[in-house]
Design a protein around this nucleic acid. Structure first.
Length: 559
RNA sequence: UGCGGUGUCGCCAAGUGGUAAGGCAGCGGACUUUGAAUCCGCCAUUCAUAGGUUCGAAUCCUAUCACCGCAGCCA
């Protein structure tokens, strides 16, 4: 894909440039995006996707999509399909589609080779015992009593593990490296564990499954990946991956770690997001409040806005938290360019134009894309004697610098007429129920023949023609800038759920121009002077439901 | 406490010995039939701190401090 703005320099590109200079990989650039199919993709993954696919795109290389499906107890086909759909939606195409499970046979054969070479052994220590033997941060570990058992015995046991002769947890296959290493990953890491579980692709073929550490590096190697980009927490694992590659004497990719994305007010932990879904805090993975790609899509984010966002935040090795405002900027920037404009009144107050003929209806032609000089498309909005305007657009007693409608002041009804407020009608509680105005018939279109100016321009909707629609508005799912920064819960663990906002969804009725009644799921609009909205999949023919994607910038309200 | 990392404007982030890019946010102002968009201007004598090397240091050296990650048969 070719994007208008290429990202600026970053340390990964510097590495690739240097590698191309030295010919390290024969000028090949081959990346991969390796999700585990145990949940839906979120913004954090978008950063990784844009990085991997973007790098290959920029250097004329390739990118594989590889599902790291080494743990059958957590992974499901539903997730692989959703992940594929999200990547495509973002606008990327993988060159090859692989699964770590494609390599189960090869990995198994390699494991046997390592056993034969005395570099791996079957250990019968229990999980608890293994933890004790592993040592601590300051103390070296101890060798397992099974560490030096005969090769033939390990071979036999591993074969029987594979055949399913032992129950889960009875024994594991471990690499024989160094129990005293300051790097824990070298303290005889587990390569295989027994899992009598059904795998989403290999079915019941296997009773032993490779650990991620034993599968990942070799998968990259097998695929000819050049730059294996992953997040910071795998930095300590890199020496282990290199050890496996070296001892297997196979092609060596270069792993590069970068800092994962953290966004203020957003939770980017698959585990915790799954909890929100499972406990019903949100209505599924694609709830518009979720930071998942499917949730953002439903909320009205565009693929381009997310890609642009990823480009502007950059890539580095320092942990950081990006302000939500950055994402908002990217969103508004794209939506502003593409969204058709429409009239919609979110919180109505009736306006009666007393000198406008009763029963008369005029068709007002308005630009659908006023922001786009190249697009002259227009549509028609009916105008009549009684209309709705926003409650906030009229004030009986104005605040300073208020430039909207007040008694005696003339303002413009967008693309229609200039009107002047004359009276206010209230109910017994003093609430304004109607505003009476007069209009100047000579101002059709919104301009006075004598050239007089008005300070305010309001959007409106004809009362008898307006269509009531459901509007869903959202606030951050979390009240804390850092959702994980939580008070301690009962179990001694941090109870991040205490940060979940309990009123993050608000449902209201808005009155929209007639054309919007036919909006189809996914249609985006800018409700003039208000914000961007998208028709939700819950919409039915003639009965659209709109999600508020994001409001317009409002520098007036801030003051 | 062992090992591996990271510290440049409120938030991201370039910079790789030659004298601090850019974006977001913010603040002024212009324009405006969206208080939007657009446009103009302002916004780090200073790069965690302290020393040192050098004609010259955010970049090299030394020490210190702070923060992150690693002790799953998770990834």
């Amino acid at each position: 894909m070719t994007e208008e703005n290429k990202t600026s320099s970053n340390f990964i590109k510097n590495i690739v440039d240097a590698d191309n200079e030295s010919g390290k990989f024969d000028n090949r650039v081959h990346t991969r995006f390796p999700p585990e199919p145990n949940g839906y993709l979120h913004v954090g993954h978008a950063k990784s996707i844009c990085l991997n696919f973007g790098l290959a795109d920029e250097y004329g290389g390739k990118t594989n999509l590889r599902f790291d499906d080494t743990n059958p107890t957590k992974e499901e086909t539903e997730y692989v399909e959703a992940i594929k759909a999200d990547i495509k939606w973002l606008g990327f195409e993988w060159d090859n589609l692989f699964f770590a499970s494609d390599y189960f046979d090869q990995l198994h054969a390699w494991a046997i080779r390592l056993i034969k070479e005395g570099k791996a052994y079957v250990d019968e220590l229990s999980a608890d015992e293994m933890r004790e033997y592993r040592g601590t941060l300051t103390q070296p570990g101890k060798n397992s009593p099974y560490r030096d058992r005969p090769v033939a015995e390990s071979l036999d046991l591993f074969e029987r593990m594979t055949n399913g002769e032992f129950p889960d947890g009875a024994m594991v296959l471990r690499a024989k490296i160094d129990m005293a290493s300051p790097n824990f990953n070298f303290r005889d890491p587990v390569m295989y564990r027994i899992l009598h579980a059904h795998h989403h692709r290999t079915g019941d073929k296997w009773c032993v499954y490779p650990m991620y550490d034993w599968a990942h590096g070799q998968s990259d190697s097998l695929e000819g990946v050049t730059h294996s980009i992953c997040t910071l927490e795998f930095e300590n694992n890199r020496p282990l991956y290199d050890w496996f590659i070296e001892n297997l004497d196979i092609y060596a990719p270069q792993q590069i770690e970068f800092a994962r994305l953290n966004l203020s007010y957003m939770m980017t932990s698959k585990r915790k997001l799954k909890q929100l879904v499972d406990t019903g805090v949100v209505n599924g993975w694609d709830d518009p409040r979720m930071p998942t790609l499917s949730g953002m899509r439903r909320r009205g984010f565009t693929p381009r806005s997310i890609r642009n966002f990823c480009d502007t935040i950059g890539v580095a090795r320092a942990n950081s938290v990006v302000e939500y405002a950055m994402l908002e900027h990217a969103l508004r920037d794209d939506l502003n360019q593409i969204a058709p404009r429409a009239f919609a009144v979110l919180d109505p107050v009736k306006v009666v134009i007393t000198n406008y003929p009763e029963g008369k209806v005029e068709e007002i032609e308005v630009d659908t894309y006023p922001q786009d000089k190249e697009n002259s498309e227009t549509h028609v909005v009916p105008f009549s004697r009684e209309i709705y305007i926003e409650r906030a657009d009229f004030m009986e007693v104005p605040v300073p610098k208020y430039r909207r409608l007040i008694p005696g002041r003339e303002v413009r009804l967008m693309r229609a007429y200039l009107v002047t407020a004359t009276d206010v009608v209230k109910d017994e509680d003093g609430n304004i129920t109607e505003v009476h105005c007069t209009y100047d018939p000579e101002t059709f279109g919104g301009n006075a023949v004598d050239g007089r100016k008005v300070k305010g321009t309001l959007h409106w909707v004809s009362a008898q023609h307006a269509v009531p629609v459901e509007v869903r508005s959202y606030e951050h799912l979390f009240t804390a800038e850092n959702p994980s920064d939580a008070p301690e819960g009962g179990s001694g663990e941090l109870d991040w759920t205490a940060n979940v906002r309990d009123n993050s969804l608000t449902v209201t009725t808005a009155y929209v121009e007639p054309d919007l009644a036919n909006a189809k799921a996914g249609d985006v609009y800018q409700f003039q002077r208000n914000g961007y909205y998208v028709a939700d999949p819950d919409s039915e023919p003639g009965k659209p439901v709109f999600n508020r994607t994001i409001g317009l910038r409002d520098t007036w309200a801030k003051k």
